[in-house]
């Protein structure tokens, strides 16, 4: 199936351009937080059979900590980072002024309503509409943070993303040790060392079944753990 651009609804503003559109304060806050996250988590970044690139990508990662999205975002080189938006839960990130500001202005996150999913406004459609033809996304296919640190089952969103935009590279990302730095339910971090691995890009094979694809994607993340 070939991808056909859906006509953009008139009332929806075109995807906000990163960079000049954001105020200097937000950019500075973003840089500071990214540096702080890198420092606190002592993250070493590995690119395995994959290079940082400004082409459109879906980064999909295991989810163990609140810092996950921030850390992946900050591990990307500046030009790539400008084009990449983390996907986050609206019910959590739109609560309170600070969280809202961080999510919307600083990280330019794409907030998805987990509780109120409409048929015509499915999260996948929202994501595809928001990224246009330039932006990349960071998604966590497990849906929520794992309690034990083990990799959970992937939800089907990733499959539909891949199916509707077969031209976009899917890059598996594995985050190691971050669940010990800021586990679920804690708000004070312990500054251990973590490791972020970006793996070789993959695509949805022609005619590949949903279950097989999700299993393959999950294995790709798992494989980066070594």
């Amino acid at each position: 199936m070939l991808y056909q651009a859906e006509p953009m609804p008139v009332d929806v503003a075109p995807p906000r351009r990163a960079g000049p559109g954001r105020t200097a304060v937000c950019r500075a806050a973003g840089l500071t937080l990214a540096a702080l996250a890198r420092l606190l988590s002592g993250a070493s970044v590995r690119w395995i059979a994959c290079q940082p690139d400004t082409c459109q990508r879906f980064y999909f990662a295991n989810h163990t900590s609140h810092l996950d999205a921030l850390l992946i975002w900050s591990s990307l080189p500046q030009p790539v980072r400008e084009l990449t938006r983390p996907v986050a839960a609206k019910d959590y990130w739109s609560r309170g002024v600070l969280r809202r500001w961080l999510a919307e202005e600083v990280f330019d996150a794409l907030l998805i309503d987990r509780t109120d999913i409409k048929v015509h406004q499915s999260p996948v459609d929202v994501m595809l509409r928001e990224i246009g033809s330039t932006r990349s996304l960071i998604v966590f296919p497990e849906g929520s943070r794992s309690v034990t640190g083990d990799l959970g089952e992937f939800k089907s969103g990733l499959y539909y993303l891949a199916k509707k935009r077969p031209d976009i590279e899917l890059v598996p990302v594995h985050i190691d040790n971050l669940n010990r730095i800021l586990p679920r339910g804690e708000f004070l971090p312990v500054p251990l060392l973590s490791c972020i691995s970006f793996g070789p890009p993959m695509w949805l094979e022609h005619g590949e079944a949903k279950v097989n694809f999700l299993a393959r994607a999950r294995k790709a993340v798992q494989a980066l753990k070594e």
């Binding site: 002592g42 040790n177 010990r180 312990v190 500054p191 251990l192 060392l193």
Partner: peptide, 9 residues
């Protein structure tokens, strides 16, 4: 500090 990080990690 850094050595302790590595140790506990």
């Amino acid at each position: 500090f850094w050595a302790l990080r590595e140790f506990i990690t």
